[in-house]
């Protein structure tokens, strides 16, 4: 076991876990979207789980640092909050906010983070970015709503884990990046029907059953 200090409070945790996991296990919430406990190499792509750790001169993502005895972690500094708010506003600026009609309403990770950061669901300094509207329908059992997706990649991870080889992957570049199954209908017909792991893991209902 390892002891570390988070926000002036001592917590105890298993060896070899990430700072993020240690905090979550000890009921200290740090906003995160792309992290799962089972991941060996967390992608570190949502850029929300920043913390400050003594010895590092800059906020660092807590999903990428392993705990060490005596580590001093602060989860709520001004700099951390600033980065989290900016990252969250970025995500919000490409998210179609329509909670009322969204199946993820009330269990949505974005809502949770908005509450936690006291941010709300309205943009503060940015403008909504226009992205291609529409729902991808070519999967036989699922729909993909790109302007809900936060590209956390959890769906790709669980699919890989469950089926050995991921049926889903990232496609396109830059702001156009989406999750795609590359139209492989035959493969999808045999694997996806009983699985739906991706739909269950999606934090924002961007993947839904047809």
């Amino acid at each position: 076991m390892v002891k570390l200090i988070v926000d002036n409070k001592e917590i105890e945790t298993e060896d070899e876990v990430t700072v993020l996991q240690a905090c979550l296990d000890n009921k200290i919430y740090i906003p995160n979207l792309c992290y799962l406990k089972e991941m060996d190499n967390p992608p570190g792509s949502c850029r929300l789980c920043f913390v400050e750790i003594k010895g590092y001169n800059q906020p660092i993502t807590s999903c990428t640092v392993k705990v060490k005895e005596g580590m001093e972690v602060r989860t709520n500094t001004e700099h951390v909050r600033r980065l989290q708010r900016t990252a969250f506003e970025f995500l919000l600026s490409v998210h179609h906010v329509d909670c009322k009609n969204c199946p993820a309403n009330k269990k949505c990770e974005l809502q949770r983070i908005a509450k936690f950061l006291h941010f709300g669901l309205k943009l503060k300094k940015l403008e909504q970015l226009e992205r291609e509207e529409g729902v991808e329908q070519d999967h036989p059992f699922m729909e993909y709503v790109s302007n809900r997706c936060v590209l956390c990649g959890k769906c790709v991870f669980v699919c890989q884990k469950k089926n050995g080889k991921a049926m889903l992957s990232f496609a396109k570049r830059g702001l156009d990046t989406v999750i795609s199954f590359f139209g492989e209908e035959d493969k999808a017909k045999t694997t996806c029907k009983e699985c739906y792991a991706c739909v269950e893991i999606c934090p924002v209902a961007a993947l839904i059953r047809k």
Partner: peptide
């Protein structure tokens, strides 16, 4: 850079577009 961003992380994917 905005076009060449790989789309993985939030800051680069969305931030550069802003």
């Amino acid at each position: 850079t905005q076009k060449e961003s790989c789309g993985k992380c939030t800051f680069c994917r969305i931030g550069t577009k802003h």
